[in-house]
């Protein structure tokens, strides 16, 4: 259970009338099941927030085209999916072959999150045991 807090947020004027807050949201994903945290980040990105899903465990699934497109979309919306403390995977790339997931150290992440409006620990904790083959991919 983690309490999050609000910070000063940038302001976006939408259609010249309605004032909306564009929030910086960091989504920390400890469990190997990272796809839904990224999807949730994309949901916030399309709502005009800046989403930064962080894969904390260094374990990466085989990325489907759907997930690679989601990760690219987060980037297009001025967010970024990061891998913290482990090399970004080679199997999640754009059309030019560039890695879509960026790397960030724990120290850099700590600094970056000073500007966060929300920090969200997403899903379940990291597992200590290896998943069986039935659900490993």
């Amino acid at each position: 259970m983690v309490l999050c807090w609000t910070n000063a947020a940038s302001t976006l004027y939408y259609k010249g009338y309605n004032k909306m807050e564009s929030l910086k949201v960091y989504i920390l994903i400890a469990n190997r099941m990272c796809n839904d945290g990224i999807r949730s980040g994309l949901g916030l990105a399309v709502e005009n927030h800046y989403a930064f899903p962080i894969i904390m465990n260094g374990e990466f699934p085989s990325f489907s085209t759907y997930m690679s497109e989601n990760i690219a979309w987060v980037k297009d919306m001025e967010g970024q999916v990061y891998s913290c403390g482990a090399p970004a995977p080679d199997n999640c790339v754009d059309e030019e072959g560039n890695k879509l997931i960026a790397e960030i150290s724990l120290e850099e992440l700590g600094e970056a999150m000073r500007d966060a409006d929300f920090i969200i620990p997403y899903g379940l904790p990291k597992q200590t045991n290896e998943p069986p083959a039935a659900c490993a991919e």
Binding site: M1, T6, E21, R39, G43, F118
Partner: peptide, 19 residues
């Protein structure tokens, strides 16, 4: 609903907790 409801929570609520 969709994840847009989460976006609305961030906009509308001054306090926020993750469980």
């Amino acid at each position: 609903r969709t994840q847009a409801f989460h976006g609305a929570l961030l906009d509308e609520c001054s306090k926020y907790i993750v469980l």
